[in-house]
Write a protein that binds this DNA or RNA. Structure first.
Lengths: 218, 218
DNA sequence: TCCTATTTTTAGACAAGCCTAAAAATTAAT
DNA sequence: ATTAATTTTTAGGCTTGTCTAAAAATAGGA
């Protein structure tokens, strides 16, 4: 259907266009680790195939077609991640790269069977929602710890950075999806935060507080 | 490591070189559905990478390196086939194309975990042996029904043709791997055979008799 | 052996995806 | 509003893997 390269661009645009109207060439180049000129080439191709609208010098956005395509790729990626963790003893910091390969396997039946095997999970191991076969998924409001008021609490339901280093840091401190976290105090001058889990209190830097997304509890 | 195209050539050469010393350019082109000139290009590249020996105008054979590579690809292909049949309710005639894609996924740990999940199967759904992590696999002697003497019997342990049509034909007649089959009588003039299973007697054409491989019982 | 048929290789072209360097358009700043 | 900085596009080139058409090598037959 579409080449792997096309699929990767579609996915990148989808993730970038969240909220924004148009995604710029440079933003896409940054995310894809390619040069702006390569992006321009690809945007023309995606526009030809009616997967994206492309306005020269302004940017691009996915068409309905492109969005469908993106959600199906994301569905595959996240289901494979769940599969790797649930069925094959991978840890949540090992699965991303392999899922990047597996998400391009073309077989509708395959991914639907994987979905069934896993009993139709709603979230991947990093807390991100999994689109169903029709591309629908639940969008819950998640707030980074750095934007909470002192005293507010919530359940960890997503991480922005999925690098091995960061996920292993969380493991070390027994923080995982579903962990209940309360912000005790935010330092005004450097944005670092003192947080509390059921197990202990922990001082975290602003960049970590930016990466931990909570579903708020009142 | 190696490109998908390289891997496909390596696999093709491996399957063709069974027995033969050198595999010809045309044979490879036939198997790969490409033109001879494309094969020549690739053989030069494989020789550069020390994956094949290439003697112009004579043919090619895999090096030790190439053979290792081939057995690892075959290992992946066959394990994925078992996975699809055992864990995802695929039938044995649906799995080949998907396994052609999955066999190129690069992750040593992934395939070893799949192997473990399946409890280290020795044969794929078509009866072909699965190489272990070191590339070793059992080579049993299998004889096509067309080469048996009248009265000889054996257990179906492999099929040559894995097309959907053929596998569905076997399903229809309740013939599967492990089915005990006896040759009652071979017609001299057209090579067709009358065979007997536990369930019934069946007249099969020579081409079908050529495709059904038995492990002999005495 | 010599001539023909087949096989294989070479030569040149093309598409996909990427790159660099230069030109054009846009944005920001004085 | 004009210039300077940034962003984006164009132009041209490279690699991989494919193709066609022509040339070269091999094999087969009389």
């Amino acid at each position: 259907m579409h080449s792997i390269s096309e699929e990767n661009y579609i996915k990148a645009i989808y993730h970038l266009q969240d909220g924004q109207e148009l995604v710029s060439t440079n933003e896409i180049a940054g995310k894809m680790n390619t040069k702006a000129s390569s992006v321009t080439d690809m945007l023309k191709k995606l526009a030809d195939k009616n997967l994206a609208e492309y306005i020269p010098y302004k940017g691009a956005r996915l068409t309905k077609n492109g969005i469908n395509c993106a959600t199906q790729i994301i569905r595959k990626h996240r289901l494979w991640e769940v599969f790797l963790v649930e069925k094959l003893d991978f840890s949540w910091d090992e699965v991303h790269e392999i899922a990047e390969q597996l998400e391009h396997i073309q077989s509708r039946k395959l991914i639907d069977e994987i979905d069934k095997l896993l009993d139709y999970p709603k979230h991947d191991p990093h807390g991100d929602p999994i689109p169903d076969a029709q591309g629908n998924y639940e969008k819950t409001v998640k707030t980074p710890i750095s934007q909470l008021e002192n005293g507010q609490k919530g359940v960890l339901s997503g991480v922005l950075d999925t690098s091995t280093r960061f996920l292993q840091y969380l493991d070390k401190h027994n923080i995982e999806l579903g962990t209940k976290i309360q912000l005790l105090e935010k330092e005004a001058f450097d944005g670092s935060c003192l947080i509390k889990t059921d197990l202990k209190e922990l001082q975290i830097s602003k960049s970590i507080a930016d990466n931990l997304y909570l579903k708020l509890l009142k």
